[in-house]
Amino acid sequence: MREFSYRRASGVREALTLVAEHDDARYLGGGTNLVDLMKHGVETPGRLVDVRRLPLGGVRETPDGGLAIGATTTNSDAAAHPEVRRRYPALSQAVLAGASGQLRNMATVGGNLLQRTRCGYFADLSQPCNKRAPGSGCAAITGAHHNHAVLGWTGHCAATHPSDMAVPLAAFEAVVRYETLEGPGEIPLADFYLPVGDRPDLETALPPGALITEIVLPPVAAARRSRYRKVRERASYAFATVSVAVALDVHDGFVRDARIALGGVASRPWRARTAEEVLRDAPATPDRFRGAAEAELATADPLPGNAYKVTLARNLIEAVLTELAERDGR
């Protein structure tokens, strides 16, 4: 690990300045991913600007009936917040499905969005990786890619985004708010993560030096009956193989609103808009659910070693839709 200086910012503006004035500065939140990658030598900041104690924590209700979650809110506090649990249970479940109790106590929701992939080649400096060293190549596409992307990847990178939290955020059309020295800005989650293209190292649409301040959740009636289901290689404390966040509003046997997003299948949380379209105003039946899942995955393009993820994603969408419909029916 390279030597670095450390500054604790007392305000957002000071934090922005401390990062802007240094060539190679990074914000430090909970550190659960950044410190990990610094130990691997993947991240080599010359200065860390600690934003963990900025007054950006907490969950507040927005006038329109949504919620705003401050960027430095810990994952634990976000998941335990009564209004998150009441209005967006899938979000609480997704956060609780991530990492461990200890890590959730440290990690911030702002940092959670900016997690880097857990592709083994990304953390191994002796291997080529376009995400870590642009232009060096991708060892995973021809190598071990059992847990890599089946949607939206390119020949430059097939890594997946590891966040659980971002999956329901995508389904609920959250908006990421940030500050820069030039002023505030916001990006819908749908646009927050950039397509892989030929620059997989460029992951988000955040302007350089921007600091995430909060995540805003619009009111979503269906979200009160939402569910996050995560499948992984052991029962807990593992990244997703495939996960799904689903919100479903059924009225008189017909789907009024459906929100679906997948995790573990792409470089970003995958909003399943095709499936949602198939379901809108359709009868809430297992056949329709399966059809919707199959429509969404029609464009899936698995690598030789991960075709199972397509089946798994299809089955998961169908299973969770069915579960929610049955729960509503009771």
Partner: peptide, 25 residues
């Protein structure tokens, strides 16, 4: 690397992994 929990301590009453916590922070 925060993958085993053997370094867990309580910081201000909450459990954390001390291996990914910088001392200075």
């Amino acid at each position: 690397h925060g993958q085993c929990g053997a370094c867990t301590v309580l910081a201000d009453g909450r459990r954390v992994v001390s291996c990914l916590t910088l001392a200075v922070a």
